[in-house]
Structure formats: C-alpha cells, structure tokens
C-alpha cells in the first residue's frame, strides 16, 4: 500500500522529469486511519441530520423570518414597561448574587476537604463523586427537582442556583488548592504545623485570590442561569420575558432582550475587571 502511495507522489511531484533531476522523495505517510475516522463521523452526521425532525427547506425562509421578527422587536421597542423590567431584572440579579454566595460558602469548605492531603481519602472520594454527579445533571433540572420540594419562589430559585453550582465550584476549589499546595504547604509542615495550620496559613491565603475570582465568575454564570430559571417559573426577568413572548407582544420582548443583554454585558465587564485586578494583586 505504501508502495502505491509512493509511486503516486513521485509522479505527482516530478512530472517535468524530462528536464529536471528526479528527487528522492520519501513516501508520504499513510493517513488511512484518519480518513476512515473522518468518513465514519461524516456518515453519522449525515444520518443524524437526515433523520432529525427538521424540515431543512424551512431554513430558506429563516433569514426573512429573522428580519421580520427583529423589526417587530427592535424597530420600536416598548419602553413603557421599562420600570417593571428593571424591577424584575434586579430580582434576577439578586437571585444570581445570593445563589453565588450560597454556592461559594458551601463549596469552599467541601472543595478544600476534597483536595489531596487535606481531608481523609474516603471523604475525598465521596465529595468528588458528589461534585461529578451535580456537574453532570443540567442546572435547570436540579432546579426543577428542588423547586418541587420547596415551591417556586425567587428565594428557592436562589437556593437552586446555589446548589446546582456546587459541582463545578467544588471541583475548581480542589483543583486550585492542589496546584498551590506544594511549596507553602511543605513550609508549614516543616515548621511542625498540623492539618488546621496547613489549611489556615498555607492553603487559604494562597488560594484566596483564585477562589474570589471563581466566586465572581459564578455570579456571571448565575446571571444567565437566573434568567433561565425565570423561564421555568422562578420569577424575575426570565418569567417576564417568557410571558410576553407567549402574549407575542414583540415590542416588549425587544425591550426586555435589550435589558437582558445590556445588564449581562455590564455585569460581565465589571466582574471581569474585578477578577483581573484580584488575580494581578495575587
């Protein structure tokens, strides 16, 4: 097989051989595996696309539809409901903030205990398992389950955000602690410090900037998540948006979208700037 490839590449590259010396080109390495893998993925993709319940021909009308709805939403947004929208937006921000605080307060001690060399092995494994399971289930589903237990209010929405984030936040915490452990931890141990001294004087100060930065990042994620929880009924801007979409009052929907986008981008940029300052100060 290699010989065949070899002769092909030879003839391809030295066609004007009559006038030029033949170059001793090594055989091109086989890429059979790669080609087969690409073909398989492509085939699965085609079958998936073909059997999906989508009329692909509808896509032709999509640009016109998008233009039409964009005009309905943004040509003349209805600003009369802005005060109400800001009220609901603040409710979503509150949900996100309290959820982030709860998440951080719970996940920092749990995450620390899950780090190598801090907690006992059985606890470490149990906590890591718990984090992995919480991470795998979509946040909305965790929230829906919690909401069946606690009822649908913004407060329970915040609780749901707090718990749904523990999986990822806990993982970040123990990963951070583990990357920081070595030098400072050895110093404390060399000075005869116990486990508590280790956590208090070696891990905590070194990990603090990263943990604060993650906490802010959790807030950014929660801003988006709180709007999503609103759609499933927890209140806030998401609920308002879902309602007005159902009423098909597009000019109000346009206004709400502008509020969501502007708020999210503002929170992202403020929080991002703070995170950079925290990490530079570290």
């Amino acid at each position: 097989m290699n010989a065949a490839l070899d002769s092909r590449s030879r003839t391809a590259t030295s066609r004007p051989a009559s006038e030029r010396p033949v170059l001793a080109l090594p055989p091109r390495p086989s890429r059979l595996g790669q080609t087969v893998a690409t073909a398989v993925v492509g085939l699965v993709l085609l079958v998936s696309a073909a059997t999906l319940d989508v009329e692909w021909s509808d896509l032709r009308e999509l640009p016109a539809a998008v233009a039409e709805y964009a005009a309905l939403m943004f040509a003349d947004p209805d600003w009369s409901r802005l005060p109400r929208a800001l009220f609901e937006m603040w409710r979503s921000i509150s949900m996100a903030w309290l959820g982030a605080m709860l998440c951080v307060v719970v996940s920092i001690p749990l995450g620390m205990l899950a780090a190598h060399g801090v907690g006992p092995a059985w606890l470490r494994l149990a906590l890591r398992g718990l984090f992995a399971v919480i991470r795998a289930v979509p946040e909305v589903i965790i929230a829906l389950v919690l909401l069946t237990v606690t009822g649908l209010t913004p407060f329970t929405g915040a609780l749901a955000l707090g718990i749904a984030g523990i999986g990822t936040q806990g993982k970040w915490t123990y990963e951070t602690v583990e990357t920081l452990r070595d030098g400072a931890a050895d110093a404390v141990r060399a000075a005869g410090g116990g486990r508590t001294a280790l956590v208090r004087w070696a891990l905590w100060p070194a990990a603090l900037p990263a943990l604060l930065s993650f906490a802010l990042y959790r807030f950014e994620i929660n801003i988006r998540m709180s709007a999503v929880l609103g759609i499933v009924g927890a209140g806030g801007i998401g609920s308002m948006l879902a309602n007005y979409t159902n009423y098909r009052e597009w000019d109000t929907v346009g206004m709400l979208l502008i509020v969501v986008v502007v708020t999210t981008m503002a929170v992202d940029s403020v929080s991002g700037a703070l995170r950079r300052r925290i990490m530079e100060g570290a």
Binding site: V228, I231, G238, A242, T245, V260, V261, T264, D268
Partner: peptide, 9 residues
C-alpha cells in the same frame, strides 16, 4: 449575553 433557554423561547 442572551441565555440559552431565552434564545430557545
């Protein structure tokens, strides 16, 4: 900046 479920809605 627009959350996934908002796009879907």
């Amino acid at each position: 900046a627009v959350p996934d479920l908002v796009w879907a809605t």
